[in-house]
């Protein structure tokens, strides 16, 4: 009896001890995950009906507001560029030499056939600004201890009303995230893995997105290289840079 009680008690203690710190946890996660700027190369593996496709790209990002992505392969996508400034998004396609603004309903379309929409990539507000959070428990994920954080939107204009995050208690890296509808229905699940220490921060190199309502294997996102705090020239974040 005693042996059972102790872990439960300690869990309760842990929760009460950390409840008010949920925000603190998220802030530490943000500090860990975001940076002033970064350059990374990634591949996105999309499992389609017929075949899986791998799309590689290089992204330059400053803060959360500005990012510039250039697709490297496959040949068909090579040279396609995407620029995001605040809440605007442009795509440039070299074959047509057109820069097209993605707006309105187009934002809800999937990116390159993946389980991600443009909109999913657009929301750049800090999690702590739009969600109230609370630690509701602990759970081991992939052999690591995590806090379970329940996030509830405190503003109305968010895509997901509720989120649940599993955060590594040591490294302050999310290992799993679930996105819920207002009704509480699970819509999407994100699994993060291959956490590596890069330039002193812990960073998950692999992310799997899965739309839970739809059949399919989801979309894998693998970061092949990442560099933080580089000097990125400002002109990259301009529409003129798209055409270069």
């Amino acid at each position: 009896m005693k042996t059972i009680l102790i872990p439960i008690l300690s869990t309760c203690l842990l929760i009460s001890a950390t409840a008010q710190d949920a925000n603190e946890i998220l802030k530490r996660v943000e500090r860990n995950m975001s940076s002033d700027n970064r350059i990374f190369e990634s591949s996105m593996i999309i499992h389609g009906n017929r075949a899986s496709r791998t799309i590689t790209s290089r992204t330059y990002a400053v803060g959360d507001k500005q990012s510039f992505t250039e697709y490297l392969s496959p040949a068909r996508e090579q040279g396609t560029k995407m620029l995001k400034l605040e809440n605007q998004l442009w795509i440039y396609s070299p074959s047509t030499d057109r820069t097209i603004q993605i707006s309105g309903h187009m934002l809800r379309q999937s990116v390159m056939g993946s389980d991600l929409s443009y909109e999913d990539m657009m929301d750049d507000r800090k999690i702590t600004e739009i969600y109230d959070s609370e630690v509701t428990g602990t759970e081991p994920v992939d052999g690591r201890n995590t806090w379970i954080l329940d996030l509830t939107a405190k503003v109305t204009d968010v895509a997901y009303h509720k989120r649940k995050m599993w955060i590594d208690t040591e490294r302050y890296v999310p290992l799993r995230e679930e996105l819920f509808a207002k009704s509480g229905q699970l819509l999407k699940r994100t699994s993060l893995s291959e956490v590596k220490q890069i330039e002193g921060r812990w960073f998950p190199m692999k992310v799997i997105y899965k739309d839970m309502l739809k059949q399919g294997d989801g979309t894998e996102f693998v970061i092949t290289s990442v560099k933080f705090n580089q000097s990125i020239p400002d002109y990259i974040f301009s529409k003129a840079a798209l055409k270069q």
């Binding site: 396609t80 047509t96 999937s110």
Partner: peptide, 16 residues
């Protein structure tokens, strides 16, 4: 005009 659609494999299709 430019057509924006998706390719057979789900990629982005932009064509003039």
């Amino acid at each position: 005009v430019t057509l924006i659609s998706s390719t057979m494999l789900g990629g982005m299709a932009i064509h003039n």
